[in-house]
Design a protein around this nucleic acid. Structure first.
Length: 808
RNA sequence: GGGCGGGUGGCGGAACUGGCAGACGCACGAGACUUAAAAUCUCGAGUUCUGUAAGGGACGUGAGGGUUCGAGUCCCUCCUCGCCCACCA
């Protein structure tokens, strides 16, 4: 018979709720800890992939509470977004209703897992109490120039019928629906994240509690490069071409230059010349190319403009091309080309027979390579007064020279673009802007916030319902009171998730997004847990938003997340568990079949959190078996007539287990090895079960239950009660081990001969090297290896091994 | 092309700072209980050679080299899988 998890889990969930045991206290003298999991999109049913995220957090939460932290551990829902709107179109249900229903079922499932959130702090981003502060902040940003509208080439997803931010385009495809993204010139709203590029980059160094790979991804995304902007005059023309280079040391090797196809100067330069038609044709071909094919097409192509530029350092005339491998978005859209020292330029030069001029010689090979460009450091040649310098030194020397002669200047470029935040969809925060024919673009006044989403719109599946809602769009201009219309775009849902963790600190505040005092106490998040897929998206936006809110004076901290844990995926049949793959194991099924404690124990035991977890039904059964065994052991305690033995070894293992479990949870979140240690402790108890005196037995079992309680809380509460305790186990203090109890009187050490294991001997712990050697020499197994051999030396590792090195 | 992770039994995974590889669990095998099965309990187990047996030997952490008394762990070369970035001037 297996234990009655259904009754037990229900009983304790009700008990916890009734006694409000998970309510976080307000500001107190206890050491605070803010623990957070990335909040979910309320799509309805939870599968074990979601559950893993929460279970990792909840186990830690329970551990921290028992360690006397003042813990903030909230939950909320990222409730705006397209799926709700699509569901509305499909099922003829309002997104608000659909979302609420999903939240309800998800909350239920989370409670059934025994997750110990403080539900009083619930944050739902689609509610006006929340999104009004998106609007409020937008207005503040607008005043400061951090929010602005501009016409720009944007990424448009035809399926989602909306534009996307750069970060939301993955390999040229929409992050959500994987449709191919089109480039459209549209007037859109942006947040000026680029103002923070340098700080976002610099502060990454301080985020030592983050996985290195996430920091690297963000660094790459921000993409800082320092270099030189140089002006190349066009021969026989007043035009000048500005280029950007990170390799000023190659300036003397420039033999041509090329423009991006979109560069406006191209058309200007060839206007009225015989090249005009050819160039226009080429440009059209490139520009029309789809984004993806253009990126994939590595074959370099270009056309000579028939014009020459002058190298400002040498006075040399160099031909100007337009080509397919220069990007308009980066640098200046025009580049100087040094085929000898850049592989792309090299390929282009070979193809069009452009001279290749070497200016850096390879110190390891004096013959110039005719097969590829030499891009490493080397010795400067053919570079006038800079000859013989190391090319790395030459970078700064030539930069100095260029600046001195006013031919250009040092500049810094970033890959990071401003965050495009407007979306042509209904289910999001309305952008609080009013367009008036007389007054132009006018921000909605603070007193009129929130600008509510109208509820009476029609979802036809075509276009933005908001734009068709007369009651919404028609309004009065706040300035001149004349007729005006509202902005119908809504905000990217990543705006919502960029500050929800700050709202948790003060979720009911209605004068500001949050009170500074509360936020100052709780922020930053001490431990954030979530998937790696947000390495750049959510985690970068949140960092920006927090810094921007700081500069509005709303809070003091500049980095929202002190420590970050990226948990691995849950994999089944070789794929990530997901609805579309059809390989989901639902939380409901698991909890129904084995109970929450088993489900929790398994996901924690099967792999360390940062690694992918292979789902195994048999493994789950094993976890269930373990819980049953412990439950049985506790049940048998009463009838234990017992022996009289006192086991020092069991006492030692008890303390060892406390130490191991505590360390594994606190330092590395290695719940798998912590659980393994608890299992070993259990195994040891059962071995000694019949001979042990009941006092020590009971004592050991109590400890076992306490140590297991963060992992499998319901069954542990029940066992705790069976063991005769009236208070919840949550009130129990986390145990401390006694280092002196870990010492063993006798230990077994390994004896090696020339590094090979040849035997094991039992010794008193404090036995010295010489004595051990003598014992080893008289050991039968070892003796035979030493016969007629000379001992050259011995290596002794206290408490571990003795290695005897022999010769002959 | 660049960067970051991995590669350990049949499987998931352990192994502090270079010190007895394979903890813990799953699956498996044998036995006990049972009319039988399931459940439960006990025992076994890296591979291989050898021995009637107790036992003993050799090999073994993707491959090959190196450093060391000693290498899963450090160094070099390479293979392979995953992720991220990628014509970034």
């Amino acid at each position: 018979m297996s234990y009655d998890f259904k009754t037990i889990e229900k009983k304790w969930q009700e008990y916890w709720e009734e006694k409000k045991l998970f309510k976080s206290t307000e500001i107190s003298d206890k050491k605070k800890f803010y623990l957070l999991e990335m909040f979910p999109y309320p799509s309805g049913k939870l599968h074990m992939g979601h559950a893993r995220n929460y279970v990792i957090g909840d186990t830690l939460a329970r551990f921290l509470r028992m360690n006397n932290y003042n813990l903030l551990y909230p939950m909320g829902y990222d409730a705006f977004g397209l799926p709700a709107e699509n569901a509305a179109i499909k099922n003829k249900i309002h997104p608000d209703k659909w979302t609420d229903e999903c939240i309800k079922t998800m909350t239920e499932q989370q409670k059934k897992l025994g997750l110990s959130y403080d539900w009083d702090r619930l944050v739902v981003t689609s509610k006006p109490e929340y999104y009004r502060w998106n609007q409020w902040v937008f207005s503040k940003f607008y005043e400061k120039g951090l929010a602005y509208k501009k016409l720009a080439p944007t990424n448009f997803c035809p399926k989602c019928e909306t534009v996307l931010a750069n970060e939301q385009v993955i390999d040229g495809k929409c992050w959500r629906c994987e449709s191919e993204v089109e480039v459209k010139n549209l007037e859109q709203w942006f947040y000026k994240i680029t103002d923070y590029a340098e700080e976002l980059l610099a502060d990454l160094d301080g985020l030592t509690g983050w996985p290195e790979r996430v920091r690297i991804m963000q660094r790459n995304w921000i993409g800082k490069s320092e270099g030189l902007s140089v002006i190349f005059p066009v021969k026989n023309s007043a035009q000048k071409i500005e280029i950007f280079t990170t390799r000023p040391d190659t300036l003397y090797g420039v033999t041509f230059m090329t423009f991006a196809a979109e560069h406006p100067l191209v058309i200007e330069l060839v206007k009225g010349t015989e090249k005009e038609t050819e160039i226009k044709k080429f440009i059209n071909k490139i520009v029309v190319q789809k984004r993806i094919t253009r990126l994939e097409d590595k074959e370099k192509e270009g056309v000579f403009l028939g014009k020459y530029a002058i190298n400002p350092l040498t006075g040399e005339e160099i031909p100007i091309y337009v080509s397919n491998f220069v990007l308009m978005e980066y640098g200046t859209g025009a580049i100087m080309c040094v085929p000898a020292h850049d592989q792309r330029d090299f390929e282009f030069a070979k193809k069009y027979n452009i001279p290749i001029k070497q200016v850096i010689s390879n110190p390891n090979n004096s013959n110039p390579d005719l097969e590829q460009a030499f891009t490493d450091e080397g010795i400067m040649v053919n570079s006038q007064q800079f000859n013989d310098l190391n090319s790395k030194e030459a970078i700064s020397k030539i930069s100095d020279y260029v600046e001195e002669k006013k031919l250009g200047k040092r500049v810094v470029h970033y890959k990071l673009r401003d965050w495009l935040i407007s979306r042509q969809r209904y289910w999001g925060t309305p952008i609080p802007i009013i367009y008036c024919e007389k007054c132009g673009t006018v921000p909605g006044p603070e007193k009129d916030l929130p600008v509510l989403l109208p509820m009476d719109v029609k979802f036809t599946g075509e276009g933005n319902p908001l734009a068709k809602s007369e009651s919404f769009t028609k309004c009065k201009c706040p300035k001149c009171k004349g007729d005006a219309r509202r902005e119908t775009d809504t905000m990217d849902t990543f705006v919502d998730s960029s500050w929800y963790f700050e709202r948790y600190c003060d979720p009911k505040q209605n004068k500001f997004p949050f009170d500074k005092k509360n936020v100052s106490y709780w922020m930053p998040v001490d431990q954030y847990i979530g998937g790696i897929e947000h390495a750049v998206l959510h985690l970068l936006y949140s960092r920006f938003y927090t810094k921007a809110l700081r500069d509005l004076g709303l809070l003091d901290c500049g980095e929202p997340f002190k420590n970050l844990l990226c948990q691995g995926m849950v994999v089944k049949d070789g794929f990530k568990m997901s609805k579309s793959k059809g390989n989901v194991v639902s939380v409901d099924d698991m909890v129904g079949k084995y109970g929450a404690d088993t489900a929790r124990l398994f996901v924690l035991f099967a792999a360390p959190p940062e690694r992918d977890l292979d789902w195994s039904d048999e493994g789950v059964a094993g976890s269930f078996r373990f819980l049953n065994k412990i439950y049985k052991l506790v049940g048998q305690l009463k009838g234990h007539s017992g022996g009289t033995d006192t086991s020092e070894n069991l006492e030692r293992i008890k303390h060892l287990t406390i130490k191991k479990v505590t360390g594994d949870i606190r330092e590395e979140f290695h719940f798998n090895t912590a659980i393994a240690a608890i299992m070993e402790f259990y195994n040891e108890i059962t071995v000694q079960h019949s001979t042990l005196n009941s006092q020590q037995l009971k004592n050991s079992v109590k400890m076992l239950v306490i140590l297991l309680s963060p992992f499998a809380p319901h069954i542990c509460e029940e066992m705790w009660q069976i063991l005769g305790n009236n208070e919840s186990i949550l009130k129990e203090k986390w145990p401390v081990w006694d280092e002196t109890k870990l010492v063993q009187e006798k230990i077994i050490i390994a004896v090696q001969i020339n590094g090979k294991l040849r035997g094991q001997i039992e010794i008193k712990t404090e036995t010295g090297e010489k004595e051990i050697l003598e014992i080893a020499k008289s050991n039968d197994k070892i003796k035979k290896y030493l016969e007629n051999k000379k001992i050259i030396k011995t290596i002794f590792v206290p408490k571990k091994l003795l290695n005897i090195v022999i010769g002959g």
